[in-house]
Design a protein around this nucleic acid. Structure first.
Length: 413
DNA sequence: CCTCCACAGGAAGCGCAGGAGT
DNA sequence: ACTCCTGCGCTTCCTGTGGAGG
């Protein structure tokens, strides 16, 4: 009983945090440090909506964690506040296309913001579009559609919906659509339909990565809101900034590090957050990421990953697609499951690469053919742990440990 | 300089589950 | 009850390719 009370007391009265939510990825601050120029450009472009005119479409480039999403959300939020006091009908929609990665889901999100009810599935995408247009024709106002990580949608499903949405304005009179596309891959624009490319890129804004000093400023600003006074050691913020700066200036990672470091300090009952907690946070974040990815992998995805883990001896060596396939077949045979084709395994390897759990590089070995060099991009321990959670794969997980340990021993000889 | 390996990775389509609309 | 839709994991068939070795 006592211990439960202690837990609840320690939660309600955190010795570390004043307001932990200020460090969460979805918190949008009132002020964005070091993004003044970009915010100005965005605001200037979108401001014409307050006069009832259609803003130019905007294309935003920038690596992850450079403040693109925060900037767009901040500006659209302020814009719709202003619009309502000015009596202009504004319909902002924010869609993260990586999470809602089909034309159908994107279209239903858009349709729902003008008050239509769209089922999860069952309708044709063109039907959703038709219903949207039918209602939009009867409305007056400006719709700002933000498509975050737009490259995912186009890569998977082509630029068809983009083209339709961009052309929708031709059929509408009092309702106007303006699109803000956000991407972290600049090269993706090149394989767009030229018509889509030119109308989407009426305005372009580039978000460059933060350097360590800028990350420092961002973290300091946020830390003063989130942490109680004096709980951060002096070297904590510079360390988080330096670690994130090494990963292409990703502010989100920097904030995650800071938050998790604080959480670890709190869990351990420490009164101060130190660099030791930051280093522990780094490991914990990476582990959680891997665990979540591996858990949601389908069966053959897990087996291919197991094969990669085995062939790379837990990450020490490189391997190739052919080697992975051979090992995968052995695993499948041992489990008595039907195997998937080589093409599919190759596809799974590509997917694992996209998920960031392995790293691949296509190379040519001349006479000995073209293939991909495959490395493990993460520690093998969480992978084995998650595999062992599945009772049918437990044996394989054990075996992996043996394979890796054996290679360790032979190395030390 | 050409060949030819061991793949890469595109395209089309299939069978299934989950869910509408009629 | 029936038809039609989508997403997913997958197969089949395919064309393309960097460079070591002849």
């Amino acid at each position: 009983m006592n211990s439960l009370d202690e837990i609840f007391d320690s939660i309600t009265d955190s010795p570390i945090f004043k307001d932990r939510e200020k460090l969460l990825p979805d918190y949008i601050p009132e002020r964005l440090v070091h993004r003044e120029q970009e915010l100005t450009r965005l605001a200037q472009t979108l401001a014409v909506a307050l006069r009832g005119e259609r803003p130019n479409n905007i294309f935003i480039y920038g690596l992850t964690g450079t403040g693109k999403t925060a900037a767009v959300k901040l500006v659209t939020r302020k814009l719709s506040d202003r619009a309502s006091t000015r009596g202009v009908r504004l319909y902002p929609v924010y869609i993260n296309v990586r999470q809602r990665d089909t034309p159908y889901r994107v279209m239903s999100d858009i349709a729902e913001t003008i008050g239509l009810r769209i089922p999860f599935t069952g309708l044709a995408t063109s039907e959703v579009f038709r219903r949207f247009m039918a209602k939009a024709k009867r409305l007056r106002g400006i719709m700002v559609i933000v498509l975050d990580e737009i490259d995912f949608l186009v890569k998977k499903h082509g630029d068809d919906i983009l083209y339709k949405l961009l052309r929708a304005n031709e059929e509408l009179e009092n309702f106007k659509i303006s699109i803000v596309g956000i991407t972290n891959s600049i090269s993706f624009v090149e394989n767009l339909d030229p018509r889509v490319k030119s109308s989407l890129g009426e305005e372009e804004i580039v978000f460059s990565p933060y350097n360590a000093q800028q990350l420092n400023d961002i973290l300091s600003e946020r830390a003063s809101l989130a942490f109680k006074d004096g709980v951060l050691d002096d070297d904590v913020i510079p360390l988080c900034a330096a670690l994130a700066a090494r990963e292409h200036g990703d502010a989100r990672r920097a904030l995650d590090l800071l938050r998790v470091a604080g959480e670890i300090a709190e869990r351990q009952g420490d009164r101060k957050v130190t660099s030791r907690h930051v280093m522990a946070a780094r490991i914990e974040i990476e582990r959680d990421r891997v665990v979540e990815i591996v858990r949601t992998l389908p069966m053959h995805g897990k087996l291919v990953l197991a094969a990669v883990t085995a062939m790379t001896r837990g990450g020490k060596n490189k391997t190739t697609t052919g080697e992975v396939y051979d090992y995968y077949r052995k695993l499948v045979a041992r489990l008595g499951i039907e195997e998937v084709t080589f093409r599919r395994v190759s596809g799974i390897i590509g997917e694992l690469d996209m998920l960031g759990i392995i790293r691949t590089r296509t190379i040519s070995r001349g006479r000995y053919g073209k293939t991909r060099y495959i490395e493990l991009a993460s520690s093998y321990k969480p992978i084995i742990d998650v595999l062992a959670e599945d009772s049918s794969l437990e044996y394989i997980a054990r075996n992996l440990e043996e394979v890796i340990n054996a290679s360790e021993n032979s190395r030390s000889l």
